[in-house]
Design a protein around this nucleic acid. Structure first.
Lengths: 332, 332
DNA sequence: TTGAAAGCGTTACCAG
DNA sequence: CTGGTAACGCTTTCAA
């Protein structure tokens, strides 16, 4: 690949001049501009990004750290981040942390060493303590709120309230909650939302809450346990869609019918919920918009600087489908 | 962040010496080694990757270009690539091409400018013609075979044969095929596999083949069309799982039963197939292993150089589930 | 065993 | 309007 000196030589000018025309800054006489452009296209020159980076300490690279790209919630997020990044001339490095704090830290250090310009962190295990070494611009996504960093979340609490009230409205008399992990912020907020609605009901009981990780397998076990314990449960609010699908499988395996015997609603709104039978009611997060907002926010912090931490919370929406349609309200 | 000069000053040696101890090459007296190491840890020094790259023209960065991270087949691939890359000290840039040749080319150029060390390309539209500008090491994944580049694929043809024979064995008398796009290599091979099995059957007819893109929505339309045209169809081999799920939805919407009225089998083995009801039979590709193999192959080409193009084809396996279980062979 | 200095490809400042 | 050159942080000869 040709470099800037080759171009300079070919055009009969100095490298400084070439640099000026490439970056369109400074004055260049029209005739030399043309000479240089000619040389550039003849040599098919394009500036070496590494050398540029070494100078200005900017790499036009963003890091996206996710717990697990394999969880259907995240690919759409990744897509949004990648697209917005690209539109702004940035490139995205994808890092999987498997939810491990240690891996997260490794990735952050690596991104620093590679001079990434900023990081979008979707973390389970985020604690301010561990992050304070970094001074890279960083925005927290979906799973963490903290005064030192801007963050984007969905309104998990109010979504949980919506889900629980929806179940009530459909006629459920006793609603259980399969909560996510205790240390995951979204899970905690959703649990609180559920509790705020049912706390004062006469049937309410702490045993109606059971914890499981955000996956289908554990949810199956949890659901069976729940229904064995109390067969009068007729509604489940699952902390996310993967858990809800586990519920569906467990319920089916013991021969109950959804939604007649028991209604189920999830959270997230992954596309999967539309593909399964019965179709799963859920609280939909505007995932793409969230990824988009996070990326724009980050790029803004990088390019114009950060004044204050912004904390943006997105509204969620109820999607009413078969799995909670006890009253035949849906007409397909 | 501290740089090599800071360390040198602190240790009272030259930068050359620091470089030697960091890279463990050249002779260093034990006592100075210790001094230097001390300074390094006190300053928490780690070499600036950009500067290193500028020297050796290696960035320890791989590009992964995918049609669409949102298609459930790809996240697992991405995960494999990321993990293996990380294990070898590489970082992965993720690029979404949306299946557009133009976008692919843009990404490739960007990766060249950023001095990526190599590319893994999963492409629909791959044609050698367009790629010949690049001399970056590149391995083709899943959707392209070409003498100039190593490639990793699954055995699509024999998988299709397995699927079709499986349907026959389950008692299907007339099997249709919803094929993928005509310009996608995997789709073409699967179509050929199907044809090789049924071509000589007395019921065979070209109308039993219908094309659709690799998504659920189009598959619904296609399936309805197929069954309206010929209601004696009692088996469908779908070119991928997303299509198969579309079949299931369409079949359900017209009131038929799976697998009794009609059996359905997909291809890919995405985890989704295990979560839906009825569970979907499918031909499973070893996705993770494929991603792993591609990455190892690429890293090998980068680090030890490439002698010849390797062409590795992975075996696929039949997963027999409810959607084709006409004879009650599955005991859960 | 160690240090000085050139070079990697740019940009940006300072002169002219 | 243009050119020379220091600087970015590191590696790698070449000498000592």
């Amino acid at each position: 690949m040709a470099n800037i000196r080759d171009v300079a030589k070919k055009a009969g000018v100095s490298v400084a001049t070439v640099s000026r025309v490439v970056n369109k800054n400074g004055y260049v006489k029209k005739s030399t501009l043309e000479k240089v452009n000619k040389a550039i296209s003849e040599l098919n020159y394009s500036p070496n990004a590494i050398a540029v980076s070494l100078n200005n300490k900017k790499t036009k690279t963003l890091g996206l750290i996710l717990p697990d790209i394999t969880n259907p919630f995240f690919p759409e997020l990744a897509k949004a981040v990648e697209e917005v990044a690209n539109q702004n001339g940035y490139t995205m490095i994808l890092c999987n942390s498997n939810g491990l704090l240690e891996k997260e830290m490794e990735h952050i250090e690596m991104l620093e060493r590679k001079y990434a310009d900023g990081i979008i962190l979707a973390s389970d295990s985020y604690t301010e303590e561990r992050l304070k070494g970094t001074d890279l611009p960083m925005v927290l996504l979906d799973r963490g709120v903290n005064p030192n960093h801007s963050s984007i979340t969905a309104n998990n609490f109010s979504g949980a309230v919506m889900a629980t009230k929806h179940l009530l409205k459909q006629g459920c008399k006793k609603i259980a909650h399969i909560a996510g992990p205790k240390n995951v912020l979204t899970a905690v907020d959703r649990l609180k939302g559920y509790q705020s609605v049912v706390r004062d009901s006469n049937w309410y009981d702490g045993d109606l809450i059971i914890h499981a990780n955000y996956n289908t397998k554990e949810a199956i076990t949890a659901t069976k346990k729940l229904l064995e314990m109390d067969s009068s449960i007729d509604g489940i609010f699952a902390s996310n869609d993967l858990i809800a699908i586990g519920c569906l499988k467990a319920i089916r395996s013991i021969g109950w019918k959804v939604p007649d015997d028991i209604a189920v609603i999830g959270f997230d709104g992954i596309s999967l919920t539309d593909l399964i039978i019965p179709q799963l009611s859920t609280i939909k997060q505007p995932v793409y918009e969230m990824g988009e907002a996070a990326t724009k926010l980050l790029i803004n912090e990088i390019e114009v600087g950060k004044k204050e931490s912004l904390f943006k919370e997105f509204d969620v929406t109820l999607i009413h489908r078969e799995s909670t349609d006890k009253r035949g309200e849906i007409n397909e």
